[in-house]
Design a protein around this nucleic acid. Sequence first.
DNA 1: ATCTCGTGAGAGAGCGCTCTCTCATCATCC
DNA 2: GGATGATGAGAGAGCGCTCTCTCACGAGAT
Lengths: 331, 331
Amino acid sequence: MRRPTLEAVAARAGVSRATASRVVNGQTTVAPHIRDAVLRAIDELGYVPNSAARSLVTQRTDSVALVVSEPGTRVFSEDPLFSTAIRSASVELEAINKQVVLMLASSPKSHARVERYIAGGHVDGVMLLSMHGADPLPAALARLRVPVVSYGRPAVPVDIPFVDNDNVGGAESGVRHLVESGRRRIATIAGPQDMIAGQDRLAGYRNVLRDSDCRSIVAVGDFTRESGAVAMRQLLGDDPSLDAVFVANDLMAVGALQSLRQAGRRVPDDVAVVGFDDIEAAKYTEPPLTTLRHPVTEQAAAMVGLLLNLFEGGPTDPVILPTELVVRESA
Amino acid sequence: MRRPTLEAVAARAGVSRATASRVVNGQTTVAPHIRDAVLRAIDELGYVPNSAARSLVTQRTDSVALVVSEPGTRVFSEDPLFSTAIRSASVELEAINKQVVLMLASSPKSHARVERYIAGGHVDGVMLLSMHGADPLPAALARLRVPVVSYGRPAVPVDIPFVDNDNVGGAESGVRHLVESGRRRIATIAGPQDMIAGQDRLAGYRNVLRDSDCRSIVAVGDFTRESGAVAMRQLLGDDPSLDAVFVANDLMAVGALQSLRQAGRRVPDDVAVVGFDDIEAAKYTEPPLTTLRHPVTEQAAAMVGLLLNLFEGGPTDPVILPTELVVRESA
DNA sequence: ATCTCGTGAGAGAGCGCTCTCTCATCATCC
DNA sequence: GGATGATGAGAGAGCGCTCTCTCACGAGAT
């Protein structure tokens, strides 16, 4: 007992398959009474178009791959940014009737799988959440001549439209906030330097503190909570007189707060802390975290817009969205 | 310039399309030298099979829908359980060469969309992460005669294979831990009572405290951090003498800890707290949270196993995985 | 030398749909 | 009244693949 086909609908409605197809696809060149007959047949039979057959002839699939090329660690589960981005992108794509195919690419093996899948024409376009610089995927996909947009500026110079937030500007305003509130020895916990976000946020820190005596030392984490805790301990050991720290993301900032507490430093009295991202948890730390908010939802929406332009030939200039300093109690 | 077809490969290799197809699909009834010729042609042309054409004839799509029927709120982004489950399921499905199509179903409108999509034969099976009891989706999908498995026991009595963790048993052991450590007035922050997990964990709490004088009052949250904070404040107001609280998930427990801190109660000295889920953040609270761990990854794996059995006619009995008490400092 | 059988390769139907082309019908105009 | 054109519906090709059926061929048995 197979699913009913268009043929069956046509037969029941007493019309040709072509006419039934016209009705299904909403063409207006069908007489009302015939149209009604077809619609009734569709309803009675419970007809649903076969997508494989349809995309075989239309060469479209109406689905988009969301490729998350994660750095291998468990960041995906832990960092709420991923789920927020996935969720937003998903909602946006839904609105334009595209399906989301989620692909996680961590190992080289799965990279190959992703490439094969994309090359197989399963999807009309790709949204890439690529995080680390050495990632071969952006270039590989671009080579496939498939519409690709990237969340975050690709680390390798490859010609892909992208959406990013103003990492440099955000970091600058965060650090400036520390300077203006009178801090004198401002350290930073930078993100991984093979990620653009890691690089740019460190650059922003350096831009503000260059040639000033407020500068302190730099520790590098990998955007996980744990690495933030480790880096903070290290900073405290290397420069016990630091009175502020700019942390490249909130997850690491949470770890840093923990280390500061363990070291007996009061926040913000002894050490001020500024994070980046404004994840939900930033409201709930002790004390609540001053951080830089960037509009993940808008970013996702912009990404979908870019992809649409890629399909339809609109402008595909990179979109850089601003960040906003959210002052809470930690700085 | 279209993608090369099997026809082109066959022509280049000097064989028939049927033979080329045999090679592509790894059939062994092809002479080695012919096989090599075809493989060479595939390589030279960069041939990748057209998935639409293939699934048109095979009636398979090699992809599985992962439907997240979220309660409407922002839980999806905030609760790491979702991303962990998605990630694990994704990895497991990858291993059996199935693609993951992620579908978020929050509104009735998107419910309809999901149904239409599933009915459209886009996927071979469905993995359902349905959270609230009134969800019509499990029943609707079951009616579609599509293989469906559920993460968590469906709230409505519908005949769908499912994987769950031992919510009742877990709650029991958590509450028992509180009793055994000498707590006398044990309150609970229950989860939403239209979710099985919410119901079962409350049932576990009641099972242990029934007929005992350790029992205190019940507050109900909705599994969000914020609701945990609110519920805790309420509990403290209603029963200032409580000395322990069993919280139905970690996210609410984090909120509860915050309220306790604000109320000047020391944890665990004044009030002991036990959570549920063992999310990553549970390690980083102040103090670290005693909680019940359940193996999300194994659950996802079991779910994929169940789906596979559904495809191939294996056993599809429900799988209930045990929980484990993780004692940290909060209780 | 004939027959049987196993093996490997080709022919061709068909999966369910879209879309172009063709044609029948009827209103319109000279 | 016949030519013209607009309109709505059908015929049929074909999208790229799988898979059954058929057949050619050579090895082994009789």
